[in-house]
Every structure is written in C-alpha cells, then in structure tokens.
Design a protein around this nucleic acid. Sequence first.
DNA 1: ATAAGTTTGTTAGAAAACCTAACATAGATT
DNA 2: AATCTATGTTAGGTTTTCTAACAAACTTAT
Lengths: 107, 107
Amino acid sequence: MSKEASYKDKKVITIGIVRELTGLTERQIRYYEERKLIFPERTNGGSRKYSFADIELLMDIAEKIEDGVQTFEIRQEMMKEKKAADAKLRKKMIQGQLNAQFGMRRI
Amino acid sequence: MSKEASYKDKKVITIGIVRELTGLTERQIRYYEERKLIFPERTNGGSRKYSFADIELLMDIAEKIEDGVQTFEIRQEMMKEKKAADAKLRKKMIQGQLNAQFGMRRI
DNA sequence: ATAAGTTTGTTAGAAAACCTAACATAGATT
DNA sequence: AATCTATGTTAGGTTTTCTAACAAACTTAT
C-alpha cells in the first residue's frame, strides 16, 4: 500500500552491522551473494552496502537454510515470487494507463 | 501518528555513508557531535553508527549553519523543541493512565 | 583592538573493518 | 566414487575509521 520505501530499500548498511543484526557470519552473507540470493551495492572502495530489506531477506534465507532448503531452491522460489510480483505490477501499470486515458471520462 | 520507527531510528550507518548522503565532511559530522547536536552509537571497535533520523537532523543542521547560526544556538533550539515534545508525551501518558483507570467505565 | 571562541581543513599514525582467494571439511546429491 | 553444498579458517592487502594536534579564517566578547 505504501510508496515510501526510502528507508527500507536504501543500501547503506555495511556487512559487520548486517552480521550483528542477522546473526549470520560474514562468510555466510557473502556466500548467499555468490549464490545470487542477495545483491548488495558497493562503495567506491568496494565495500558491500545492504538495505533493511536485504537484512529481512537474509533472515528469511537463514530460516530456510535451517530447514534444509538448498540455496538454488531458495533462488528458484524467489524468482517465481519475483515473476508473480512483476506481473502484478504490469497489470497495475496498464490499469494506470487506462485510467489516464479514460478515467476522467466516466459518465 | 506512527509507532514503527524501527528503520528510521536504528543506528546502523557508518560515517562514510553519512558523508555521502549529507554532503558534509567527516570533520563536520564529528564536530557537530562534539557540540552535542548529534549522538551516534558505537560499534565494539569504536566506529560511529548513525540512523536515518540522524542524517535528516544533520541536513537540518547543515542548513542552519549555512544561514550563519552557531552550533550552540542550534543546540538551544533543539533543547527547547525536545522539552516541548517531552511535555506533550507526558501529557499523552497521563491521558493513557486515566484511560486505563476510567476509560472502560464510560456510561 | 585584543582576546577568546567557532568552524573547518589537514596531517599523522594506529586500529578496525572489509576484501578476495585459497584450502579444508563434513554432509548431501548424483 | 565423484561432485556439489555450505561453512570455517587463514593470509595478505586495501579501505575505512579513529583520535589528537596544529593551523587558519572568522566571529563574538571584553
């Protein structure tokens, strides 16, 4: 419902803090990136930067790993979810187009 | 209105990122701390950690500094604002107490 | 006008945080 | 049996942060 994702999605948190907040090791966090589950940005110097959303995602990942799910399965799930979300967004955008063209002309 | 300050108030951002987001130098950021305008937390190792709220505050401070306001004046303003906010909160808490005791007994 | 305070830059050296790459291992999968 | 997965550990190097000190340009107070 909201639009203000500014805090949640801004990549501003270094890996040490992510370690503290998630309880994961840096090794794990970097490995999940290697397995394309997570996509931090980088500083000019090359240090990783994460968002709060990333942290939540990492905690979800950790839970699944504990349940014995493998990283490539998690990745598949995530791609499915993303595909569904994208479809929903497309639909909404088309709705918006229609509204822009015809919305004001309702009798 | 809101209660979910979790993202905005969590101190998770290192000084380099704060520099990038605010345009201030690290020297300035540390100086404003010395003047008690801002209160970062610390990692175990001693590195400063800021919140998004801190960053917004720093940008307000920067604006005032540009307008020629001195740090101690800014501090005074801030203390006044805080005092007002505290009073408001106290009032609200007392309201809550009253509600807890008598709120259910409304006829 | 002199003294004192404010704000910021710069420098230096040390410590903390982060990086990649490689090797190791235990367990799961093929 | 061979491969893949997930994680630990180590090593060496780079980036980031820290404090402290000195300096300079300005402003405020005496």
